[in-house]
Structures are given as structure tokens and as C-alpha cells.
Design a protein around this nucleic acid. Structure first.
Length: 425
RNA sequence: GGAGAGAUGGCCGAGUGGUCGAAGGCGCACGCCUGGAAAGUGUGUGUACCCCAAAAGGGUACCGAGGGUUCGAAUCCCUCUCUCUCCGCCA
């Protein structure tokens, strides 16, 4: 949620920046400002009336104590008269607040100045790439065939148990999952992130605070009976740990990580995008989250990008880093880098990580602040997060890129975790 | 799931209709004391919105959440949430 003060300070600039995200409802800015003016006026009138009532109430008490019954009754009558005004003003203020909030939550975060204009993924900027694209033989197999051949993943079995997009991992396939999770967690720990085990279902408040609600309502699984949501990413519980907190400046940055399954309805997806492991309804991911001082959060973003780069290099996967254009960025993000690995048998890039700085957008909803030691005032913090990493497409790329005639070679760094160095004969 | 008890500031804890944003203690900050520290001692110490150019100052709201009664609610009533104890069920 954007800060009211920011919007008030320079509405035209806000509109320009939102236009970079191709945000269509720029008139909402004017709506917000008008509603805020109205809010202030109403609040002032209300505060004044309440102040009068408070004063009268004190006088009523004094009058009764002094035995001046008639005077007390008279004062009471005055107070009751004001009360009618108060009731009306309170109703107005409440409605006003609802309207203002409704308008505010529709506004996406402002893109950082480095965000390129653009509408589609084609407009994203490649800022870095690493590794040579593997030259596989003609008969190289896509991962779904490899998974079948070596009996690593059974997609049909998942359909039977739940539905499409819920695969069953078998034997070395399952062990590879576990190995990757452990590898990612260990790397994150080594980089100073404290590991957290968090709930996989969250309440509405949490889903709202990180920006999934109301923007992505239809993309989350909803547990109707209790009003909970299955987490689409560990970002939600990991960030909500800090909801409502006022941190000390010396405790920054806060670094946490966690492994969770992620649940996404992925309504509207189809075709080659959802083949095999490319897009699942349930998948595993290790997430890293940092909470940082506003002045240095972009350095932190770079650190996180370096961390993810390191993981991909250790796994010997060719990858590239994209700076997302305004149109491809998420609602809550100010700047996002996507990581894509090259899937050699599919001849396409697959997104495996997304690292973002949300600046104060989430923090404003979270009410996550720190005490500024200089000004002694509370300020909103910056939140950042990134996948480090999401498993399925990593597995897809590992299987495809590291396949040989007789099996699949496990990268050196993973062997201590898998306990085997190849799949196949 | 059943029965009961409870929820007050960073923490503990008083407060059952007005003088309560809230006693007292602990903690914390700053000062005094000290060669230095401890002890002692003094002062201060929540959040949000608004008025004010700003500071100073002032107003309003907040005692789990939401409603209600009342001139006036931390205090009375209702609903909900959470915590604890006992019983039941159970990995």
C-alpha cells in the first residue's frame, strides 16, 4: 500500500511512475487525495465535537458533586445535543475510511526509476548471463520423458490422488528433492539467514499484508471453513512474522529463510507452459527474506541477487538475470530481478527465482517500522525477498542439461546431499 | 468438543462508572554521585490521526477485537478472538 504522504506530496509524479507499470486507473490518485481531504475535515469536526462532550461530561460530574442538580441536567442536555452531531460524523468518518482504503489498496507499488517501460516479458532487460548453453544430442529428452524413463516422477499418480499439477516424486526423484531443499537451506544459513519453519496456511490478514489480497484472490487455495489460505509462497508467513513490529535500528537487517511447499491455483494456464514440471499447483521452494533500512535496501537487493547467482553457478546451470519491465512486475514490487535457467531439451528459459525489493509497500500494510535513531521517529522499513530457489524447474533443467546416453549426472555440490552421483546405470 | 478462569503500557502488576493514558515495580534513556563501576539518587520513557511553517504546545482515539448502555466506560452489557486449567478425543 502506498503511503498517503507520498501521494499527497507529488500526485503528478506518482501518476507518471504508475504509468510505467501500465496502471490504467490513474484517476484513483485524485480520488485518494479528495477522500483524504474529506477525511481530515471530518476528523477535525469530530475531534472538536468530542472535545466538547468531554468538557461537558467533566462539568456534569462536578455539578453533581456540588449538588447543583439543575445545572447538571442542563449540561447533560447540551451534551446529548452534541452527541447527535458526533454520531453523524462518526458514520461519515467510517464510510470515508472504507472508501479511502478501498481506493488505496487498488494502487500498485511505484516502480523504481531503473525499471524499464514495457508491457510483456519480451520487454524485460537481460542484465546478466552466465554459462554456456549445453549442446545436447538430437535425441535428448525433455525432463518429463527422463522422469518417466528413470521412474523419478509420476504425474499420473498425482492426478489420481489430487489432480493435474500435483506430481508424486519417487525414489531418487524424491531424494533429489530433499537434497536440493537441504542444499538451499544450508547455503542460506551460511549467508546469515535464520531458518524458520512456518505455517503453510495463513489467515486473511497475513495474505493481505504481503499483497496477495485483494490482488491475487483467485490464485490462492482457500480453506473456506476456517477462512484460511494455502500459502502461494513462504514470503507470506515469513514476512508476516514481523507484522506490527517496531524494530531497533541496530538489529537491521533482519534475515530469515524457510522451506515450504507452495500452492498456486494457476487459473488460466495451459499448453506447453504446464507440461511436466514447468508449472505446478504444488511445489517446493526455499525463500529468503530481508528487512532492511530504507537507505540501503538496494544494496541488499544486490546481495540477494548475488546469493541466488551463487546457487545456480554451483549447480552448473546456465542462467540469465532479467530486470523486469513495468508491465511484467508484480503488484507489490518496486524492482524485480527474475532468474531464468536454460532448459536444454525444451530449448527455452524457465523462471526459477524472482528477487524483489518492495520498499515500504508491504511494510505499510504490515505496519512494520523501526525507530530512527536520528529523528526518534518511527519509519516504515523496506522488505525484500527472493526464491533461493524454487525446485521444479531446477529439477527440470538438471535432468535435461545433465543427461547422458546412460543416465543423469548429479552436480558435485549436491552429492553430499543425495548420497548418489548419478541417476541411471 | 464440554466446563471454568482470564486478556491492562517493553515486561510484571494495581485499578469495578468521572479527578485514568492509566498507581507501583522492573527494564530502558539521560543526568548526579564515583578514580571507574555497582549501589544510591533525580528526570524522562507507548501508538496513530489532526491543528501549528516548524519547534513548543494543543485536540482526539486506543486498557484483546467489534458493538451497546451512559452526560461520562479500562471499569457495566452483548458478540467474537486468543490464552490458561480440568474433562473428552487424538498423531
Amino acid at each position: 500500500m502506498l503511503e498517503l504522504n507520498t501521494i499527497r506530496a507529488n500526485p503528478e509524479d506518482i501518476k507518471k511512475r504508475l504509468a510505467v507499470k501500465n496502471f490504467a486507473h490513474l484517476h484513483l490518485i485524485d480520488t485518494v487525495i479528495a477522500l483524504d481531504e474529506q477525511r481530515k475535515a471530518t476528523q477535525q469536526a469530530l475531534d472538536t465535537a468530542l472535545s466538547q462532550i468531554n468538557a461537558l461530561s467533566r462539568e456534569v460530574g462536578d455539578a453533581f458533586k456540588a449538588g447543583k442538580k439543575e445545572e447538571a441536567e442542563m449540561l447533560k442536555a447540551q451534551s446529548i445535543a452534541i452527541k447527535e452531531t458526533v454520531n453523524q460524523l462518526e458514520a461519515d468518518a467510517k464510510q470515508n475510511e472504507i472508501d479511502l482504503h478501498e481506493a488505496l489498496v487498488q494502487l500498485p507499488n511505484l516502480p523504481h526509476e531503473s525499471v524499464p517501460a514495457g508491457k510483456t516479458p519480451e520487454d524485460n532487460e537481460v542484465v546478466f548471463s552466465h554459462g554456456d548453453l549445453p549442446n545436447l544430442p538430437e535425441n535428448a529428452m525433455p525432463h518429463w520423458d527422463l522422469a518417466h524413463k528413470y521412474r523419478l516422477i509420476d504425474f499420473e499418480l498425482g492426478v489420481k490422488i489430487t489432480g493435474a499439477g500435483f506430481p508424486v516424486y519417487i525414489g531418487k526423484g524424491a531424494q533429489l528433492q530433499r537434497a536440493l531443499i537441504n542444499f538451499f537451506l544450508k547455503e542460506a544459513n551460511a549467508a546469515g539467514y535464520t531458518e524458520m519453519q512456518v505455517p503453510h496456511v495463513v489467515n486473511e490478514e497475513s495474505a493481505f499484508a504481503t499483497g496477495q489480497l485483494p490482488d491475487k484472490e483467485g490464485q490462492m487455495y482457500h480453506v473456506g471453513i476456517d477462512g484460511f489460505y494455502l500459502i502461494p509462497t513462504a514470503e507470506v508467513p515469513l514476512t508476516n512474522i514481523f507484522r506490527g513490529e517496531i524494530l531497533k535500528e541496530e538489529d537491521l537487517p533482519v534475515k530469515v529463510c524457510g522451506y515450504t511447499p507452495c500452492f498456486r491455483r494457476e487459473a488460466g494456464s495451459y499448453g506447453k507452459d504446464v507440461r511436466g514440471l514447468n508449472r505446478l499447483h504444488q511445489f517446493d521452494k526455499v525463500e529468503i527474506v530481508q528487512i532492511q533500512h530504507p537507505d540501503v535496501s538496494y544494496n541488499t537487493l544486490e546481495d540477494m541477487v548475488q546469493h541466488v547467482s551463487g546457487l545456480l553457478q554451483k549447480l552448473q546451470l546456465p542462467y540469465r538475470v532479467l530486470r523486469l519491465c513495468g508491465g511484467d512486475m508484480s503488484f507489490a514490487s518496486a524492482l524485480t530481478y527474475d532468474f531464468e535457467v536454460y532448459s536444454a531439451a525444451q530449448h527455452r528459459w524457465l523462471e526459477v527465482s524472482s528477487v524483489s525489493n518492495f520498499e515500504t509497500f508491504q511494510a505499510n500494510r504490515l505496519k512494520l517500522r523501526f525507530k530512527d535513531t536520528e529523528t526518534k521517529k518511527n519509519r516504515l522499513l523496506h522488505t525484500l525477498n527472493g526464491s533461493a530457489l524454487a525446485l521444479p524447474r531446477i529439477v527440470a533443467a538438471l535432468l535435461e542439461n545433465h543427461q547422458t546416453e546412460t543416465g543423469i549426472t548429479i552436480p558435485e555440490v549436491l552429492r553430499p546431499y543425495t548420497g548418489f552421483d548419478r541417476i541411471g546405470e
